[in-house]
Design a protein around this nucleic acid. Sequence first.
DNA 1: CTACCGATTGACT
DNA 2: GTCAATCGGTAGA
Length: 207
Amino acid sequence: MFVFDLADAPPLTQAFYQRDPARVAQELLGKILLRKTRAGFAGGRIVETEAYRAEGDSASHAFRGPSRRNRAMFGPPGRAYVYAIHAKYCFNAVTEYRGQASAVLIRSMEPLVGLTQMQTRRKRERLLDLARGPARICQALEIDRRLDSWNLTRGKRLWIVNPHAPLTTSDRILQTPRIGVTSAKELLLRFCLADCPFVSGPRKWRT
DNA sequence: CTACCGATTGACT
DNA sequence: GTCAATCGGTAGA
């Protein structure tokens, strides 16, 4: 079955994450985010991401230097950075570009495996309501602060793998401003699959 | 300690 | 489209 093939696929390596976050954000589109708990496997296809830098990016948590909250962003690439905002959690993959702290926020996912689990955790039936939005992904996959700094390259608990079918030229990628930020609105660091129903945000930034 | 606020969401007009 | 709930992080007294 689909799930077991994906579970056997090798996790993306540290080298994948040790690059410019904008590039990583773009290349994470179409990849499969996997979560394993006692309830089993859950996960889906990443369809929307945002890059956050340190220098020149006032919207980034790393902009004002290291703190207790953002320390994962200053650690090695290939780890998770999980933070709380508005009483909810968001999940990032830590990247690194020329020694600078950076990360990619995973904003939306097309649910593929563990649908029942995710429906239960989200208290929602519709697939469109399960993982469209960064805090919804975390609720659906039971990601919280305990996974902050988690190593994503080991293929345990939380990791990312290549899909069976990679993106093709017919999968148009959109580059837009980031959603919800109150500064650095001019930077085009959000990436998503065009015309994908599982992407969040305004219509004009979806197609 | 208090006060303010946000990389959000869900309910509602 | 608008708006308020929610709570940890942060800055400042």
